[in-house]
């Protein structure tokens, strides 16, 4: 039997693609739940020091939730929403993480490596997450490419295919997006 949520998500995506905000929110909720569920399931088998790849999780969600023939437009929408969910997760996490650090952490010797190692990545992701809104103001199309590529891990070819543009253009938009982000973040 197919996942009962699958047909549901496919239709929601379709509605969301037509501008139904309620449908978008619902897909993001489902995605968020599913990402968490997958993360927890995986954790059990992993060494404490391991990290999870958002991209791998998103792909797994995609296969679980959207296991149907689906239009490319809807597929694009899925990855766009997944990217937003991932951004939200990163921002939440860094906020909480900073609070915890201030609150004094007697916790986890075992997560120490993950923390040390993950902090760099998360710090960067968080910075990019926060800067994404401003990027969208400056250039919506470039922001969309960064969202699809950075937060959901699509390749240039896949971004191009999903957006219906040439791969060369996808690459150049990526360059614009990252350059504008560098500017927003005042990288020297």
């Amino acid at each position: 039997m197919t996942d009962p949520a699958a047909g549901n998500v496919t239709r929601l995506l379709h509605d969301a693609g037509r501008g139904d905000r309620g449908a978008s929110d619902r897909v993001m909720e489902l995605l968020y739940d599913d990402l968490r569920r997958l993360a927890v399931a995986k954790l059990g088998d992993m060494p404490p020091a391991a990290t999870l790849q958002p991209t791998a999780l998103i792909n797994e969600c995609y296969l679980r939730l959207v296991d149907k023939e689906i239009d490319y437009a809807d597929r694009l929408h899925f990855f766009r929403l997944a990217g937003k969910v991932m951004r939200g997760i990163v921002v939440d996490y860094t906020r909480r993480h900073q609070t915890q650090k201030r609150g004094g952490g007697r916790h986890r010797v075992t997560l120490e490596i993950a923390d040390r190692d993950g902090d760099r990545a998360v710090g960067e992701m968080a910075a990019v997450s926060e800067a994404m809104e401003r990027l969208a103001d400056r250039d919506a199309e470039a922001a969309d490419v960064v969202l699809l590529k950075y937060f959901t891990g699509l390749s240039h070819g896949q971004v191009a295919e999903a957006k219906g543009i040439s791969e060369a253009r996808a690459r150049r938009l990526w360059k614009l997006g990252t350059t504008l982000l560098a500017e927003i973040l005042e990288l020297e």
Partner: peptide, 8 residues
């Protein structure tokens, strides 16, 4: 794509 600590 970046790796996240599971806690995230």
């Amino acid at each position: 794509p970046l790796d996240l600590p599971p806690a995230a």
